[in-house]
Design a protein around this nucleic acid. Structure first.
Lengths: 197, 197, 197, 197
DNA sequence: ACGTAACCGAGACGGTACGTCTTGTCTTGTT
DNA sequence: AACAAGACAAGACGTACCGTCTCGGTTACGT
């Protein structure tokens, strides 16, 4: 029946159960207060199975983040004609997700973990880098199209946008629609602005 | 004259020693891994003396933040004629402070604590609010003086600036001078920009 | 009259309240689990007032025992013509008292304290010695009257009787009337016995 | 073969080390003043390993008593022709053991624990019951052989003897040879006595 | 009559030990 | 071999008391 050779193969069932349980614990309890025993019990898994694959609590969270289970950054940046609308849509998706208490709790837990542990921060950076790159690429196109001023680096723009969004989540403030819109205001050369000048 | 009933008075020496030791632990170990036993020992204080006044580890960190011992936000925003230079100077001071590993570690620990615990977040907000208000006030003057576009809220500008700065600290990236300068670029109406339009 | 210098006199109210509260704690909680803090609170007294007069928990219990508040040994041994009836009556009084759960608990607590602390044992001995002496004296009269065999020491008889009674209290077994009567059986020369031989 | 599911089996090494360390603490410090932390350290065992198997300090002492580590009652009652000599020998063994300070301290600690905690008292009773039964059985043979008066219950005789012996240990008085001998005097029908009547 | 000294209730202090919880390792038996 | 279960050593957690010290305030002697 089994396609296995000698010795059991790594159980994908166990891996997924661990990830799911970790995500649940992270959301419910936060980063500290998270208990490996509880994760093992919830996943129906022996503790050693966790420690076999993850050397520590931080490594476990790191993997969780890397899989995209924690930070709500997995949205695709659209590529229409309208640069501002594309970025705005990505921000809206993030904002919408962040309004779910569970997702916000996960984000905070992930940030806390990254703040505390360099190894988690490294994984965290892998994920944010992907998102940053996508946003930067889209903004670069906007610069090329003359929709965005080239007076500042698009990388810095991205950090300002992501920074402001995370700042709101960490401070437990809602990311309203108006707020989202305002984030783009300073970067785009608008008709209104041009005409006013 | 005394405002309290009978019984020994609270020892200010103990309180200060606890705060100082807590700060040291935060910087050295981070928020989790922080040990009350070690703080008590370092402060030369009984554990109960800590627990008498702070109901939990989080409450202790919260007080530490409120006293301004953790986040490097205590700088005064200058009030010269040049709005951009004033804000830039505040950012430079923050950036300089953030280059100290100890200060960066403290900031990360504080953010992690705030991310995890609403009560810490509340204290954290008390402190950041003061800084935000000062920056907003200065920016508002800049708007009035026509140095800044009124197309977006100064509060949002402030959050974008602080968000970007914290984002760098959390990601363990240095806040370079160029980065600092770029943060102001999108908000100020410059001669170059005007002429280009 | 007073041999003391200036200053407030010892508060008899406080002393009594402490003794009463100690007795209550002993009966309710037993010897360990007894808390000076709780005694002070129950007595409406500062802790220092307890420590001023009693150097330790044991000294406090010792005083409590010495005042006759703990062991039910304060009964007078009657002196009628009938030695056996006199001793039997004393035993009955002890037995009756020992059936009160509170009194039995106090006795057990006192024995536990004496077993643990030589200083308590010394006070305990002061109290038991008085009782032993009274019983020995009455038994000696019985020996002189030919009612008791002189083949063994009356002191040992007394220890066997008290030992058996305490053994029952410690083991939480009731001291029944039959048991009390049997305790005297081996020591008295009875008509029945003489005639049978 | 195994009656248990998967998982590590209870470590007999740990159990024995705990018992040994508890006995040591009991003798050295007495029942109160006994510290679980110290026992764990002395036994080279985690505290949780103690609490996993013993719900409380009292339960730990109870087990210690049940294993015969505390009360010196493990001697066999001889069965020769001479009942008085048999009982006398058992008493002598107890008396000899009780002269060891360590053994006396253990006895006092055990009695104190039993006096304070019903659960300890129950285990204590399990142990004393075995000894009582053995003594009663031997005394019953003596009654059948006409060496002992049947005027009183042999159970009560046993309690008087054990009570007197414990009374001496608790009061920190030595059990001398004369004292031991006198304990048997009232129960046995001697030639002298018969002739006197 | 008044100051001085010992008392008092209250309660904060530096500590010890508690009993619980979590971590990461190790062992046993099952799949 | 990989797994679930779970015992283990280590040690941090927050709680309860300990015995000492300090705070204001209150007697009650001795001058």
């Amino acid at each position: 029946m089994s396609a296995r050779g000698p010795g059991a193969q790594r159980s994908e069932r166990a891996r997924n159960a661990i990830m799911k349980a970790t995500r649940g614990e992270l959301a419910a309890e936060g980063y500290d207060r998270l208990s490996i025993d509880r994760i093992a019990a919830a996943a129906g898994v022996g503790k050693q199975t966790i420690y076999r694959w993850y050397s520590s609590k931080s490594a476990l969270i790191a993997e969780c983040i890397l899989r995209g289970d924690v930070l709500p950054l997995g949205f695709v940046v659209p590529q229409t004609q309208d640069c501002r609308a594309d970025i705005a849509q990505w921000i809206d998706e993030f904002a919408t997700e962040s309004r779910s208490p569970l997702s916000a709790a996960l984000t905070r837990a992930g940030v806390a973990a990254a703040a505390e542990h360099p190894e988690v921060a490294a994984r965290y950076a892998d994920v944010t880098r992907a998102t940053e790159s996508a946003l930067i690429a889209r903004l670069d196109l906007g610069v090329a199209a003359g929709q965005i001023s080239d007076a500042m680096s698009t990388a810095t723009m991205t950090e300002m946008i992501l920074g402001a969004l995370l700042y709101r989540v960490l401070n437990r403030q809602e990311i309203t629609e108006q707020y989202s819109e305002q984030l783009l205001e300073p970067f785009f050369i608008t008709a209104v602005r041009v005409s006013r000048d």
